[in-house]
């Protein structure tokens, strides 16, 4: 059995695992999966779907802003009481946050490792470049980075209030309105939501393919669902800053 690292084209024979030494078939199923490209894609798919589910709920919750400050602030308060009295105050919120952070980390780490692999697999570009794949497909990596950076900004803006012009705890409605009174707040938000839309458009369908959706009818439905999800999510999220900018919400 060969033990050399798999770099030179001439010494790759024999049974070997993706990262060199131990043969992959001796590993446990989870470790073996994490080493493989399909396994990492599976992690991306599952974590991505989790975050997508959260985004749908988040977007729908945002729409409460159109029913006025009382209802929106009441909704924000209610989020802290979910699960009571079984759960302590804000516990549900913290559980959700932990799960989401885990999903973000899993998604980002797999994406980084897979991208490194992908780029290394095609070290020389063609001299003759032809028209490339769809915009959504080729912006997945940097679009994902943009969305990740936005999440940091968004938390500093509307969770901790650090960069929010108002940033008053317990007054989310007023903070949201304040956030969208600055030009940069609007620009950052709009760019990020367009990036989310593109990311979801390619990501949702890709996740389904990674998880093995093969039937033709199912694939057509999932492809259509990808587009609908992308458009509805982006439109729903953008409706809030647009409403503030036009004065419909103030």
């Amino acid at each position: 059995m060969a033990t050399a690292t798999a770099k030179t084209p001439t010494d790759r024979g024999g049974e070997r695992s993706a990262s060199g030494t131990a043969p992959a078939r001796r590993l446990g199923p989870l470790r073996r999966m994490w080493r493989s490209s399909i396994g990492k894609k599976t992690v991306m798919a599952v974590s991505g779907l989790l975050m997508l589910g959260y985004l749908v709920v988040h977007m729908l919750g945002n729409l409460k802003i159109f029913f006025g400050a009382d209802e929106f602030n009441g909704y924000a308060h209610w989020l802290r009481t979910i699960g009571e009295p079984f759960l302590h105050h804000e516990w549900f919120l913290w559980i959700a946050r932990v799960v989401l952070v885990a999903a973000v980390v899993a998604h980002a780490v797999s994406a980084y490792q897979l991208s490194r692999r992908d780029l290394a697999a095609r070290p020389v570009k063609y001299a003759h470049r032809k028209a490339r794949t769809s915009y959504a497909t080729r912006t997945m990596r940097w679009g994902g980075v943009i969305v990740g950076l936005f999440v940091v900004w968004h938390i500093l803006d509307l969770t901790t209030g650090t960069v929010n012009p108002r940033g008053q705890a317990g007054h989310p409605y007023e903070n949201v309105v304040a956030a969208f009174t600055t030009w940069y707040g609007n620009v950052i938000y709009v760019v990020a939501m367009l990036a989310v839309g593109l990311h979801v458009r390619h990501g949702f369908y890709s996740a389904a393919q990674t998880l093995g959706a093969t039937r033709a009818g199912l694939r057509r439905g999932l492809s259509a669902a990808s587009n609908v999800l992308a458009v509805v999510l982006t439109a729903g999220f953008l409706s809030v800053p647009i409403a503030v900018m036009t004065g419909a919400v103030h």
Partner: peptide, 20 residues
């Protein structure tokens, strides 16, 4: 399992559903 392992070992990239 073995063919995918070998495919990864050889230094091929992963699928991003570009469809090319």
């Amino acid at each position: 399992l073995d063919m995918v392992d070998q495919m990864d070992t050889e230094g091929f990239g992963g699928c991003t559903l570009a469809g090319e």
